[in-house]
Design a protein around this nucleic acid. Structure first.
Length: 321
DNA sequence: GTCCAGGGTGAAA
DNA sequence: TTTCACCCTGGA
């Protein structure tokens, strides 16, 4: 597949180690640090253009918004090793082609995400490594984003291989490495009860009983059924993995925040369980479910900080917040 | 110092 | 269908 066919992203300049991507306005903060992935660290002040350090595959990278053009981001490789066709790797990671014009057209009048998809169209779905994504969301259970970052970061730095000079510059460890480490090791790392879920999941992937990459070719229903067989993976965690790594844009993960939003904005009855709530949302959003869910999650997070959404949010939020 | 919530899940009632 | 235990970290 060529970059042009992939949709959003196009390499417009630079060389193998430092290049510019034309992104159509991708926003780094909401995309990299909005709860899809947990190993990106901001390297710039809040009031400056975003700069993020992280690892994609076996390369440590720095990604920055240029400021020169809202369409462009600059990518620098911080690893010493030769990067090969790393332009493709980065474009693949960031460049899940979202049909922005159809998203806008279909949801311009949507009560919750309408203002966002028209006024702020920089939030994209990532296409992560399925194994790292699975680990991340197994770790997300009854946790919070700072802690998920801590846990996933510990797994990476303790069991992964160093690929750059920074504290977090580790390639994510293989399922074999995590399986070999075992449950007690993961507990000692601070994962808590999630260790007893992660260790068997690692064994399933390492042994080949679960072929995550094959699930990219499977239907949404089949892929979800495979993931949910893992202990510690319910529909919510499965939907996150499907949406953010397995090419299932119709996946719609429902957590407590999204539940609240569905009740508030779309009249979802309170008694609906999360499984039915996800069905309800997939019915409504179709193949835009995952990106719609990210916009809703982003909105809920920022609404709590009360610095985004303006009057629309202020009017819409109940008094009890 | 104590208290509590935090991108859930599975098992028991 | 509902309730509860599960680990532990950071902020109030």
């Amino acid at each position: 597949m060529t970059l042009a066919e992939r949709g959003d992203l196009k390499v417009v300049g630079g060389d193998v180690r430092s290049f510019t991507l034309q992104t159509g306005g991708l926003d780094l903060e909401s995309t990299l640090d909005g709860g899809q992935a947990f190993r990106w660290w901001r390297a710039s002040a809040e009031d400056e253009p975003s700069v993020y350090d992280g690892v994609i595959g076996s390369a440590a990278v720095r990604i920055r918004e240029t400021g020169a053009s809202p369409d462009d981001i600059e990518v620098m490789i911080r690893s010493n090793a030769a990067a090969g066709d790393f332009q493709d790797t980065v474009a693949d990671y960031l460049g899940r082609g979202t049909d922005l014009s159809e998203l806008r057209a279909r949801f311009v009048a949507d009560p919750c995400i309408g203002p966002a998809v028209t006024g702020f169209s920089g939030l994209r779905l990532l296409r992560q490594d399925p194994w790292e994504c699975l680990v991340s969301f197994i770790c997300s259970s009854t946790s919070n984003i700072p802690r998920i970052k801590l846990n996933v970061g510990s797994v990476a730095s303790e069991l992964g291989t160093r690929v750059g000079p920074g504290d977090a510059d580790f390639a994510f460890p293989t399922a074999e490495a995590v399986a070999a480490a075992g449950e007690q090791f993961l507990r000692d790392l601070g994962l808590g009860f999630r260790a007893k879920y992660l260790a068997p999941a690692a064994e399933a992937v390492a042994s080949g009983d679960l072929d995550l990459f094959a699930l990219r070719e499977a239907s949404f229903e089949d892929a979800r059924a495979s993931l949910v067989q893992l202990n510690g993976v319910g529909e919510k965690v499965a939907d996150c993995v499907l949406a953010f790594s397995l090419d299932k844009p119709e996946a719609f993960p429902v957590d407590r925040h999204i539940r609240r939003a569905l009740e508030r904005w779309y009249g979802l009855p309170e008694k609906t369980n999360n499984s039915k709530a996800s069905d309800f949302a997939r019915e409504r959003f179709g193949r835009f479910g995952a990106v719609a869910q990210q916009y809703m999650f982003h909105r809920e997070r920022l609404a709590q900080r009360a610095n985004w959404g303006g009057d629309h949010v202020a009017h819409a939020l109940p008094e009890d917040r």
